[in-house]
């Protein structure tokens, strides 16, 4: 398998605080990669750098969707990371368009496609056939993902009125509508009950192995991480403590020390 995302020597400092300290890793195409680590280890900061919400202090981030084409994420502004590179993300604290309906939320995921179809609103204002077809296709795609997420019934409800677990799923559906090459999920299992957590595991496997979407996730729930990931990165104080298969990481002495304290080692 080739590397989809290659990060080399990434650092991010906030004033004196070095949140991410010279880390290098790769996310393989068509795999599930997880990033774990204690609170404040710098996991979300890595996501923010990759999606260009932050400009890293140093380092390279390259996306290689096809062998012959490479995109330097450094040169893209945040919205272009989503539009051109199609790296889409969810947030640790869910960010939905609360007053808008569930379906509208998912349609925003297809914003650029629909904008083009409506010729920046000209074809849309005139209600040309071209735009109507594109809108219908977008609705079908959106409803397709909502069905997979079990949200068909809620399509017309305001997003903010959904229960917590459904909000998490909606946030993922919204990304999926944007046809992601790399899907970055920031603690997708946080706050879910055991049943929802199990469903999430199956969902992520389906997305990766049936829909071919490469997944990069941050997670605290070890049962989720160990079961579904192909590759695990362990972060501690901004440094990459260890990486490898779940088996290798589980038995890595540094990881045991960091997670269970000095005595356990």
């Amino acid at each position: 398998m080739s590397n989809l995302l290659t990060v080399t020597d990434l650092s991010m400092a906030f004033g004196g605080l070095v949140a991410v300290d010279h880390i290098s890793f790769a996310v393989k195409l068509g795999s599930i990669t997880a990033m774990i680590g204690p609170n404040g280890a710098g996991k979300t900061t890595v996501f923010n750098c990759v999606t260009r919400f932050y400009t890293p202090t140093s380092g390279q981030m390259v996306l290689t969707p096809e062998p012959e084409s490479a995109l330097d994420l450094h040169t893209l502004s945040p919205y272009k990371v989503a539009k051109k590179a199609r790296v889409l993300r969810t947030f640790q604290n869910i960010r939905l368009f609360g007053q808008m309906s569930v379906l509208e939320n998912v349609l925003i995921g297809q914003h650029n496609l629909l904008m083009r179809a409506s010729s920046c609103s000209v074809a849309g204002l005139l209600n040309l056939k071209r735009y109507r077809t594109a809108e219908k296709d977008a609705m079908d795609l959106a409803m397709g993902w909502l069905e997979i997420m079990g949200l068909t019934e809620d399509a017309n409800r305001p997003a903010a009125s959904l229960p917590y677990g459904a909000q998490r799923r909606l946030e993922i559906a919204r990304c999926l509508a944007g046809r992601p090459r790399l899907l970055c999920l920031d603690e997708p299992a946080a706050g879910l009950n055991p049943k929802e957590s199990l469903d999430l595991k199956n969902l992520l496997k389906t997305l990766c192995y049936q829909h071919g979407i490469t997944i990069f996730l941050i997670e605290h729930d070890m049962s989720v991480v160990m079961e579904i990931s192909d590759h695990i990165l362990v972060l501690d104080y901004g440094r990459l403590l260890a990486q490898g298969t779940p088996e290798a990481v589980r038995t890595h002495p540094d990881v045991i020390r960091a997670y269970l304290g000095e005595d356990a080692a």
Binding site: F91, L96, F97, N112, G178
Partner: peptide
């Protein structure tokens, strides 16, 4: 829709390519 989305949460809108 994009206007309303950025009114609701412009960071999320940006993350979706708006």
């Amino acid at each position: 829709r994009a206007w309303e989305a950025l009114r609701e949460d412009d960071i999320a809108a940006r993350s979706l390519g708006v």
